[in-house]
């Protein structure tokens, strides 16, 4: 009896393993096949690509190295860098204020919150998925080439991201606190300000910090497109073949991004 059972199990196991192997084989085939098909369709040459990586890095380390003259321009670069950091922070912060305002209407303690929530969700999806390029170009056309344009592009993008993140946090936060304040006879807005917002705020701040990090990177893109901030500095050096200066600019960006990443990781630990 027992051996029979074992025999059955053994066979089951065999078929199962075979099926699994079949599945793995086909998955690999499909993924590999579509990779090759895509490369071919896009005219991406894998051999050129593979060779380009060591070549580019060696080019990078030869040409991006600063020399004595480079240092004279450093203060100029640093001041633009500071302005860009300022843009990243202010756009994230102002976006957060707007996002908190909008999300507040989506707290379960507010009247009609289901309808409002749908609208806010729509706005968020809209803002976030419209490419940064479109915002940048559109703003550049009317606000012209200045920091304000960069600020507004980053602001709109941040607003979309923060709205979605804040909405999700609001949803996950249980309604227990709202209930506790409800029984004291408090109304919706009061419960929101005294109970709900203090509870979700640390998570919100964590997202604001993330948004600032992200904005620094995006600021480079926006800068190249709109001719502002550190992105413009890099672009103009790069295009005028001043690679030493372009290199030092990238170095500055790297230092700032890594520093920010570490600072916000520390801050998150303290806040949580």
């Amino acid at each position: 009896m027992k051996s029979l059972e074992n025999g059955l199990n053994y066979q089951d196991l065999q078929t199962q393993l075979r099926q699994k192997r079949h599945k793995q084989f086909w998955t690999l085939l499909v993924v590999g096949g579509s990779y090759l098909a895509l490369s071919w369709l896009l005219h991406f040459s894998n051999t050129i690509g593979i060779w380009a990586i060591p070549k580019s890095f060696s080019w990078l380390f030869i040409n991006f190295v600063p020399h004595a003259q480079t240092m004279q321009t450093l203060p100029d670069i640093l001041s633009k860098l500071l302005a860009t950091i300022g843009l990243a922070i202010s756009s994230a912060f102002i976006a957060a204020i707007f996002a908190i305002g909008l999300v507040s209407f989506c707290a379960p303690v507010m009247p009609h919150y289901l309808g409002v929530k749908r609208v806010v969700r729509l706005i968020a999806s809209f803002l976030r998925n419209i490419p940064l390029v479109a915002w940048s170009m559109l703003l550049l056309f009317t606000f012209k080439q200045n920091d304000l344009t960069g600020f507004l592009a980053l602001f709109l993008m941040s607003l979309g991201f923060l709205l979605r993140a804040f909405l999700e946090i609001m949803e996950d936060e249980s309604s227990q606190i709202a209930e506790a304040l409800q029984v004291t006879g408090a109304g919706g807005l009061v419960i929101l300000c005294r109970g709900v917002l203090p509870t979700v705020m640390p998570q919100f701040v964590s997202w604001i910090l993330y948004m600032i990090e992200n904005n620094i990177r995006d600021a480079t893109l926006v800068g190249i497109l709109t001719g502002t901030g550190i992105g413009f500095v890099f672009d103009s050096y790069f295009k005028s073949l001043r690679y030493d200066l372009a290199g030092i600019t990238v170095l500055c960006i790297i230092v700032v991004v890594i520093a920010l990443e570490n600072i916000s990781a520390q801050l998150r630990r303290v806040i949580a």
Binding site: A52, K55, S56, D218, L221, F234, I254, E261
Partner: peptide, 24 residues
């Protein structure tokens, strides 16, 4: 830490502007 766009620009020096640099 280096924004994607900068990587594309760097690669474009070796393989020229276009799909190869973009993919890399």
């Amino acid at each position: 830490a280096v924004p994607t766009i900068l990587w594309v620009l760097v690669f474009s020096i070796v393989c020229g502007l276009g799909i190869n640099a973009a993919v890399l």
